[in-house]
Computed example of a mutant assay.
Amino acid sequence: MLGFSVYLDKDLTADDHNYLLGMRNAGFNEVFTSLTGLNDEADVILKRLNQLTGWCKDLELKIIADVSQDDLHRLGYDLDDVEKLKTLNVTGLRINDQVLMRFVSKLSKSMWVSLNAIYLQPEDITHLKEEAANFDHIRALFDFYSQPETGMADDWFEEKNRWLRKCNLETAAFIAGDRVKRGSFFAGKTTLESQRGIYPLAAALNLKKLSCSNVIVGDRLTSETIKTFARYTKDYAITLHLDKKVPFLEENEWHNYLYVARDIVRLHNEDELPKFEAQDLPLDRLVGTVTVNSSENLNSGEIRIAKRDLPASQKVRILGKVDDSECSLLSNIEPGQKIVFKNLEK
């Protein structure tokens, strides 16, 4: 499941609605918002939430609201009053502080509940079972960390993820966006420190490799990155932007070979390809360098993308280079996966 964030610290605008629509069309199906840390009066916050939930209902988007028990009290709600909580019109609540499992069990019978993953311990799972909680409606959601150097370590995150999955809980985590960053540090809302500054689609794919089944974008995405997600969700295609326009690459359909090579992404095409002469002056192939094998090469016409810095070759011609920000995608390209080349318009 792919989610994205819309916050309630200001009045919502037509731009917010258009963003919801664009993300929905790109294959995102869940909205994350927060009722914590807001300085406005309760009626203002609830009015904004009501507008957002209305839009989400019209667009058939789920909406999860991040809450603490104190913030709920300030808004006039209590975790023990499920019927009143339903009037918030959210799909579910993400409870970001420690809470009695009897509350969670009761809520899970009426709505989705996301629990703060870092607090969950074996005794909590035991209590949920004793309270006959609906595990199909409970998820463990990791925090995001806006301040540099405070994000989680990959190995700790993966270990916690695997344990939670063994407990029959879905998990979710945050990746940073590549548009305007929020917060006082403007460093991106990411769960993993290693993913700070990483291209969003690459970060999302990396989370899946670490046993995390749900991804939420903590900041906004640029329009071009939204298109990249759309191609992935609809066609299972990885989009790579080049530093120059190469019609030969943009106009043909490419697929990775049915295995993953260590040093390169090795692409083939079903059509007959033109012949290419080797580079007059061979150059080193830095990460992201796109080459075509020359007519003297055994696999002439084959497209290759360097996944690491490689030495110069006398049997290839360099066609261009993948934008540096997207090179993190190369290690996530799967066997047989479709590749789309686009010119990087600056």
Rank of each mutant, 00 (worst) to 15 (best):
G3E: 10
S295Y: 07
D97A: 06
H255C: 11
A204N: 03
D324K: 01
E251K: 10
M111H: 06
T233P: 04
F341W: 04
R304Q: 15
Y199K: 12
K106Q: 11
M111N: 08
L169V: 09
M23F: 04
W112G: 04
D263H: 14
N299T: 11
N96G: 04
D71Y: 08
L88I: 13
A230G: 02
F185K: 09
N29I: 09
R182A: 12
E193P: 07
K166N: 14
K338A: 04
Y257T: 09
L49Q: 05
L2M: 08
G76V: 05
K338D: 00
S294Q: 06
R220H: 02
K342Y: 08
F135R: 04
N332K: 09
V290E: 01
F103Y: 15
H17E: 10
E158F: 04
N252G: 10
V260T: 14
E130T: 15
P274T: 05
A140M: 02
T91E: 04
D280A: 11
R165A: 14
D309K: 14
Y236N: 11
G177N: 04
L21D: 00
R285D: 11
L38Y: 12
T190A: 14
L20T: 01
T233K: 06
Q195G: 02
H255A: 10
K321W: 00
L93N: 04
A187I: 07
N206H: 15
A133Q: 10
I318S: 07
D143S: 13
N161P: 09
F32M: 12
Y236P: 00
K342D: 01
E334R: 11
G151Y: 09
N332F: 07
L107E: 06
A306F: 13
L61H: 10
A187T: 08
S300T: 11
S110T: 01
P282T: 08
T13L: 04
E296W: 03
F4M: 07
K160T: 13
N297S: 14
T190E: 06
L283G: 02
K307P: 09
A132V: 08
W156Y: 11
T33G: 13
L192C: 10
G151S: 09
L49G: 02
